[in-house]
């Protein structure tokens, strides 16, 4: 890449410019990689630990074992109580995808209303929405559980997904509000003059422009659902319905022996789908949004 850049230039003036650019590019990569090494060290350590025998993990400060072994992965892949690991992955995936769909749709609708429509009570409702962020979840667990329990929805996925389709995560609504309010207002004014209603402005103007916010929301909704432990703990009873975090935590028990190796191996495996999801979606963050093309 560097040689290409250098050989591409011909005149001496552009050559120095190109050389300087090449130098900054190299420096940028070197600097970023050093920073990355620091940030990723703990993850590398975890990966190293997943290749150690279980009793050699806690309290061991080394990075990589001298003779790596894969017994931990083997045990992690065995499944739990007759339920195969693939089942936990599938359950988690189902919930995560459901969460993404529900959260994106419901939050985008609510955010559009807050950010782009003037209606009576908007301020009060917005304040109420923000206030739902402020209460620690611990005191809400029990009343919420009682609701779902009375209705007989415990041990189904409904309690875990219903809130997502009803925009109960104010974080996402607020996130999208912030993005949508940043979009130039003349866009929808123009659309209005063209006779567009809110539904069409939302769909054809705002949604495409709010793509970075939607992608961000999707990524977070996926990961949060993927890593959620408490919801599945309270609402899922049948092992066939368990998610990965519930399975993960079964390798540790303070009252009996703990298998740290299998647990770390499992959490390494659990990372793979989220990394893939992120890799797939972050591409959409790359392309900058150009508003100019839409103005005409």
């Amino acid at each position: 890449m560097t040689t290409q850049a250098v050989s591409a230039s011909s005149s001496s003036a552009t050559r120095t410019g190109a050389r300087r650019r090449t130098l900054t590019t190299v420096l940028w990569h070197v600097g970023t990689l050093i920073l990355l090494a620091i940030v990723l060290y703990p993850l590398v350590w975890l990966f190293g630990a997943s290749l150690r025998p279980s009793h050699d993990i806690v309290g061991n400060i080394g990075l990589f074992p001298t003779s790596p072994e894969f017994g931990n992965y083997q045990r992690a892949l065995e499944g739990i109580a007759g339920v195969p690991v693939s089942r936990f992955f599938l359950n988690s995936l189902l919930l995560a995808v459901g969460s993404v769909i529900g959260t994106v749709i419901s939050s985008a609708l609510a955010a559009y209303a807050f950010a782009r429509i003037r209606f009576t009570g908007r301020g009060v409702l917005f304040a109420l929405m923000i206030s739902t962020l402020l209460l620690p979840f611990h005191v809400l667990i029990i009343p919420q559980y009682i609701v779902f329990q009375r209705v007989g929805l415990v041990d189904t996925y409904v309690p875990l997904l219903l809130g997502k389709f009803l925009a109960t995560e104010a974080f996402f609504v607020f996130l999208m509000v912030q993005f949508m309010r940043g979009l130039p207002r003349d866009l929808d004014e123009a659309a209005k003059i063209d006779g567009c209603g809110h539904a069409r402005i939302f769909w054809h103007v705002i949604l495409p422009l709010a793509r970075p916010a939607i992608i961000t929301t999707s990524i977070f909704a996926f990961i949060w659902s993927w890593n959620d432990f408490l919801g599945p703990l309270l609402y899922l009873q049948t092992p066939d319905n368990y998610t990965l975090p519930r399975a993960l935590q079964l390798y540790i028990d303070q009252t009996s022996a703990s298998d740290y190796g299998a647990m770390i191996a499992m959490s390494m495996l659990a990372l793979v789908p989220v990394i893939l999801f992120f890799l797939a979606f972050q591409r959409f963050l790359v392309e900058g949004v150009s508003t100019s093309g839409l103005k005409g």
Partner: peptide, 20 residues
Amino acid sequence: RDQIAGYLFLTPWILGFVLL
């Protein structure tokens, strides 16, 4: 129209807020 649209767009959120 804005009044109606505002509440229509907010329906899922209002439902979630009231119910959950």
